[in-house]
Nucleic acid binder design. Structure first.
Length: 147
DNA sequence: CCCTGATTCGC
DNA sequence: GCGAATCAGG
């Protein structure tokens, strides 16, 4: 989509009005992303509004190294997680079977780069254990991916 | 995680 | 000139 005079005008208007780039992109629609908006705004020479990132070059000296501990707590989703609800970082371990009325997915936060949460990674990726001692796996479903 | 603008660079 | 990808943050 080309930058017609109309669209440029609207961009300038909304930008001056203080809307964020993503908001402007939504207004213009037609497959325009916020990247496109920002890029165009810059090329137009629009006053680059204070970026939240670049602002305030001289910051207050922060002697205390106060570290915010990243919350390891992850909330489990409310209710059943359907196929449509799944996002990249959700555990995709199926509960039940496709077609069944109650079929859904685990949905808990998945381990980084893994399709399942910690618990279900444990189910999915089981180290082959000595034939002698498989007691640890007794009662568990077998989900070894490659046999 | 959601979000912000800035910058780069192949097209 | 364009904008996706990336960066550097809030």
């Amino acid at each position: 989509m080309a930058w017609t005079d109309e669209r440029v005008a609207k961009l300038r208007e909304l930008w001056d009005k203080g809307l964020s780039a993503s908001q402007i992109a939504k207004e213009l629609a037609e497959g325009v992303t916020r990247n496109a908006v920002i890029g165009k705004a810059h090329r137009m020479g629009l006053a680059s509004r204070p970026s939240p990132v670049k602002s305030d070059p001289q910051k207050k000296a922060k002697a205390p190294v106060e570290k915010k501990v990243v919350k390891p707590k992850a909330k489990a989703p409310t209710g059943k997680v359907s196929l449509l609800d799944l996002t990249e970082r959700m555990c995709k371990w199926p509960i039940g079977h496709p077609g069944e009325p109650d079929f859904h997915f685990c949905g808990k936060p998945s381990a980084p780069t893994f399709p399942y949460c910690g618990t279900h990674c444990g189910e999915a990726y089981q180290v082959q254990q000595p034939r002698r001692d498989r007691r640890a796996n007794r009662g568990r479903i077998s989900a070894t991916p490659v046999r």
